[in-house]
Write a protein that binds this DNA or RNA. Structure first.
Lengths: 243, 243
DNA sequence: TTCTTTCGCGTACCTCGTACTCGAAATGGG
DNA sequence: CCCATTTCGAGTACGAGGTACGCGAAAGAA
């Protein structure tokens, strides 16, 4: 990266197909990003360091900076790469409910395959091209059913909030377990178990206690619970949408 | 911290009021946490390092480890300290809508005062005592209006998802601006501005473009937009609640 | 006073992001 | 074919961060 203009990575495309003097690049943004994604999938985001990625490619850490301005920009590229996995048709079907369901389930599947995705996504207001594609599809799904564009944005935002939060809940435990260096079972039993038990036994929080002890949801599969919550959100939208 | 049992910070209370031999502690968890909160408020979470906190207290970094097992645990303590600022009555009023509104606005105010709070909270499945208090209040607000405890949990979760996402959206820009080291105005104009303009002009994303250009929401104050979205969520709940 | 326990904190190790620098390679003009 | 120009690869190094270790000081107990 020759010039260091402070601008989004999406405005700084890789210099490809150059003709002129100079050595030819031996790596590529795509290759580096793919390697980073593999490491993050296998060992978590905190293991995805510049040195580790470079090592995996059989090179030195500084070589990567010919292709990526900063580590943070590499994260943006990683996000965009895996969001490409969200498969959607070119146009919505006309059934907004099943269209939004499709977005939800595809996003969930991708988020679970790459447990670092949603936590990383939450802190970034920047929209990469692939996220833009998914967002546009969701907006289009409600277009025609909701007259006001601000309402369309609002409902899509509400759905996104649910999807992201739900994924985070599903991933939360295993990620926290890895962060503390314990396996999920041990973490649940020895790390939070005693605390939750103490809270329940204190009697100070009766409804929280009921939500733990009397929950039938907790016996359902995670997929079923996701579906349950999704329907709650879609019902919320449907109740305010002209049919 | 003498023993290094892997367990939640809430199960490892500070040893206070000790009687016996040995030097008396010169600091306290509370004092350290308060200092950390001040630094994070003023300079962001990434500036809240062990060395910086210690320096502020006029001591060495390692002294803090007598009071806090790990930096991560200190974060949990910081979260709990500022959530204490969320003021709620002992019992809900009986009007679930205004009760949940109160939770939403109090949480928003606290989240905006401490811009590191929500981003930090999002990644942690652990419930501190103060968060538990707020959660219990929200559950109690819907108790009696929603028969199934799982539904109560679901609605409260949906509301929380909205509140957190909305706060993150409000903070996102300024935080990203600080992360990149630019002031918000410059960031918006030079960093994302050109990209958004390019996206709009490309014509590939017509609905996203409309949501930018035709939005009336964007001319409202942030508080009004929060209120707008909140009412959307409350309407979603209300549509499915026995009145 | 002396012993035992606890605190304060300096030193040190390891890891990380990345600025700087220089030799190697590749191309086009002569 | 040779050399000037440009670009790439990557080693070295700096500063900052979390925290393990260990030692001297302090404070109550015997």
């Amino acid at each position: 990266m020759s010039d260091d203009q402070p601008t989004s990575i999406w405005m700084r495309p890789e210099r490809l197909e150059r003709s002129g003097p100079g050595r030819r690049p031996g790596y590529s943004r795509d290759q580096i990003t793919r390697t980073a994604v593999q490491i993050a999938d296998a060992e978590g985001l905190e293991a995805t360091t510049m040195r580790r990625i470079a090592c995996e490619l059989g090179t030195g850490a500084m070589s990567l900076y010919r292709y990526v301005p900063k580590r943070d920009d590499l994260f943006d590229l990683m996000i965009d790469m895996v969001i490409r996995e969200i498969e959607l048709p070119d146009r919505p079907s006309g059934d907004w409910r099943s269209d939004l369901s499709l977005v939800a389930h595809q996003t969930r599947a991708t988020g679970l395959r790459h447990s670092w995705l949603v936590p990383l996504l939450s802190g970034r207001p920047t929209l990469g091209p692939q996220l833009l594609r998914v967002h546009e599809f969701a907006l289009a799904a409600l277009d025609g059913f909701v007259p006001d564009i601000d309402d369309v944005t609002g409902y899509v935002g509400m759905l996104n909030d649910y999807i992201h939060s739900a994924i985070r809940r599903e991933i939360g435990w295993q990620e926290e377990a890895r962060r503390t260096g314990l396996d999920p079972e041990t973490w649940k039993r020895d790390y939070v178990g005693p605390y939750v038990r103490q809270v329940v036994e204190s009697g100070t929080y009766p409804l929280f206690t009921r939500s733990i002890l009397e929950s039938r949801m907790s016996h359902l599969s995670l997929a079923a619970r996701f579906q349950h919550g999704l329907e709650r959100v879609l019902n919320g939208i449907g109740a305010q949408v002209a049919i």
